[in-house]
């Protein structure tokens, strides 16, 4: 959908910054994992193991910069979508926790990330519909 030149520029800048951070993440992740695999005894592994955090911090910075450039409605929509995602994810985590107590196999914590992302998408859909 067409938007003002200023908003198109802002979105492009966000995509470029985020894509840059993600590419850097991809470039750092595999060498770090390999280095740790072959240097299990090294004390440096604690520092090297945290190196992928640098591009993720850059990605977070890109998101915050985009948030600052958003107009007031977009900011409200994002905030509402995140509030929904936070609440829904908490309910999902609690549900899985109770089911694990009842005997469900333990799931990897990475599923929390998947749950949060999915609920953010659902929340974004709801807020888009609300202010369409």
């Amino acid at each position: 959908m067409a938007d003002t030149p200023a908003h198109v520029r802002s979105s492009r800048q966000y995509i470029l910054e985020l894509a840059g951070a993600m590419i850097l993440y991809g470039l750092v992740l595999i060498p770090v994992a390999r280095w740790i695999d072959s240097n299990r005894a090294s004390e440096l592994r604690w520092i090297v193991g945290l190196l992928p955090l640098v591009p993720t911090i850059l990605a977070g910075w890109a998101i915050l910069r985009f948030f600052e450039r958003m107009d007031e409605l977009a900011r409200k929509q994002l905030t509402e979508a995140l509030a929904f995602a936070f609440t829904a994810s908490a309910l999902l985590v609690l549900t899985v926790g109770f089911l694990e107590t009842a005997g469900l196999d333990r799931l990897s914590v990475w599923w929390i990330w998947v749950g949060m992302g999915s609920m953010w998408l659902v929340g974004s859909g709801i807020t888009w519909f609300r202010y369409r």
Partner: peptide, 23 residues
């Protein structure tokens, strides 16, 4: 809507939502 959005420095969706009394 795009002209007005540009003048107000907001997105077209914001103008649309205000016009539809949703925001």
């Amino acid at each position: 809507q795009l002209d007005l959005a540009d003048r107000l420095d907001v997105s077209r969706q914001t103008v649309n939502s205000i016009e539809n009394d949703r925001y």
